[in-house]
Write a protein that binds this DNA or RNA. Structure first.
Ligand SMILES: [Zn+2]
Length: 493
DNA sequence: CGCGTTTGACCGGCGC
DNA sequence: GCGCCGGTCAAACGCG
């Protein structure tokens, strides 16, 4: 839409669009050590510029070519010249096509890499968790842990289970994914051209909210049925701490909604008080009873920033990309959590560490202990977000090495779960802290991770990047949303 | 005609 | 108790 202030400031207008994207890529690319990746990256960049970047890249290129041509035409009209240019064009087209195929191939590769990465991360998280369990804890904590462990055995607990699913599914669905997302209608592709995720934040909602943490099995009961009734009530009550995790993703996107691989149905829209932009409410429709909901809202200051907040856990398997994201996110979350909830000490440590590492990784994870529920924020880019800057003191940052490729949309599932599980122990692990931090740092510092992810992002964004939004996006895509905004504003409040 | 979105109404929580 | 507010419901609407 309107030029984003940020962008403009940061980049020169003309090439801005493409430059911007490339810039981000470059950031990682520099760290990039993956043998093929580096090369791949270069190619990818090209292809991205050529085909994907909807308006920006593509148009720009086209514009250039055409302009060249026109110039020639104007000055010398000889047919030869014309032919030449035409040929050139054809050649370019061929090239473009080639790039596309190449891109496709690369995407496959990346998928693979991603899966591997995912697996690795799962492993990592598992290890961490194990480590954690080893720690001495209070009786209560022990109890919880025990329970958790048991549940794991049963497969009852979602956290571990999800990971398993992730792994399996990731592998199993890989092909499906790349080929056809058989999902019917409104499945969001995981392509969202201009979406660059910048940060993820998770919020725990305390209180007896509805979703049982176990979520997996429990369908979300719509209607006004008191959530309390349906819900968890039982035991879970013990850990009244958090029933619900919130993951919010800050993404730069001009689209009305980021695509995350899930199907969403809009069920409401309202004006938030401090924000001129409306907030849209969506519900996951991938599965019948899926309790996951999300809110999409644009940042007041910078409207190019889209804030998507996910709540609840999916009661169904996630599409590969989403899963990858989820695991990734969850890993980060677990890292955060491991050191988070705890005292300020932990916070401080993390903070320091984060700052130290910051230069290496543009991504940040933040936890804020603000009011009702603490918020964890994973900052994936170093973008100077006003909101971020404004952030109150009670937060700390941790570098988050994994830029989600499309969106952590489904993060809540794994992510949330992880948070939930770990949050139980909150307060104890100061020592883990170190370990966690170390691990985090290690990962963050490891260019391979970043590279792989960047590659993934690039491929996904680039390959599929076309303007139209899929599924739900449509709904919101319609300008109507804006209109509604106005109306609903008044009405709503 | 089915389905998803739109949008005003409704509801529960919260602060005054 | 009242009003604000975030969130959800559901009838109406529009699209394919
Ligand atoms: Zn779902």
């Amino acid at each position: 839409m309107d030029p984003t202030c940020d962008r403009i400031h940061q980049n020169p207008p003309p090439v801005s669009g493409e430059k911007r994207v490339v810039d981000e890529m470059d950031f990682f690319a520099e760290e990039n050590c993956l043998k093929k990746t580096s090369r791949v990256d270069a190619i990818k960049k090209e292809s991205t510029e050529l085909d994907s970047e909807l308006d920006t890249g593509l148009n720009l290129h086209m514009a250039n070519t055409s302009s060249d041509k026109s110039m020639v035409d104007d000055e010398t009209l000889p047919n030869m010249e014309k032919k030449r240019t035409t040929n050139k064009l054809i050649v370019l087209k061929d090239e473009l096509e080639r790039m596309n195929t190449e891109n496709q191939r690369l995407r496959d590769m990346l998928n693979e890499v991603n899966n591997k990465y995912c697996a690795l991360q799962m492993h990592f998280v598992t290890l961490m968790e194990r480590q954690q369990n080893r720690k001495p804890r209070t009786a209560e904590e022990n109890e919880m842990i025990d329970r958790t462990t048991e549940e794991k055995k049963d497969g009852g607990i979602v956290f571990p289970r999800q990971f398993l699913n992730l792994g399996q599914a990731a592998i199993a669905n890989k092909e499906e994914l790349s080929q056809s997302s058989s999902e019917g209608r409104t499945q969001n592709g995981f392509r969202s051209p201009q979406n660059n995720v910048e940060l993820v934040s998770v919020t725990f909602k305390s209180g007896q909210e509805a979703e049982s943490p176990d979520l997996a099995n429990q369908g979300w009961v719509p209607n006004k049925v008191p959530k309390f009734d349906t819900s968890k009530d039982y035991d879970q009550a013990t850990d009244a701490t958090m029933r619900k995790a919130r993951v919010s993703v800050r993404a730069r996107s001009e689209a009305t909604m980021i695509s995350d691989g899930c199907q969403w149905r809009k069920y409401g829209q309202k004006m938030a008080k401090g924000n001129p932009c409306p907030r849209a409410y969506y519900r996951c429709t991938m599965a019948v009873g899926c309790p996951v909901r999300k809110q999409v809202q644009r940042c007041a200051e910078d409207r190019t920033i889209l804030i998507t907040t996910y709540e609840g856990y999916h009661n169904h398997p996630l599409p590969p990309p989403a899963m990858t994201m989820a695991s990734t996110t969850s890993a980060a979350a677990s890292m955060l959590l491991s050191g988070s909830m705890p005292s300020a000490d932990g916070l401080m440590n993390s903070n320091v560490l984060a700052r130290t590492i910051l230069p290496c990784s543009p991504n940040l994870a933040t936890i804020s202990a603000s009011a009702p529920f603490p918020t964890i924020t994973l900052d994936l880019t170093n973008t100077p977000n006003p909101s971020q800057l404004q952030r109150p003191q009670g937060q700390f940052h941790v570098p988050f090495p994994n830029p989600p490729h499309s969106f952590p949309s489904d993060g809540p599932q794994v992510f949330g779960q992880a948070l939930y599980n770990q949050s139980k122990f909150s307060g104890l692990q100061s020592s883990h802290q170190d370990m966690m931090n170390a691990a985090t740092a290690a990962i963050a510092a490891d260019p391979n991770f970043s590279a792989a992810l960047v590659a993934a992002i690039t491929s996904i964004i680039g390959a599929n990047g076309h303007p139209n939004n899929h599924g739900n996006n449509n709904s919101s895509t319609r300008s109507s949303s804006d209109n509604n905004v106005g109306k609903s504003n008044f009405v709503g409040n």
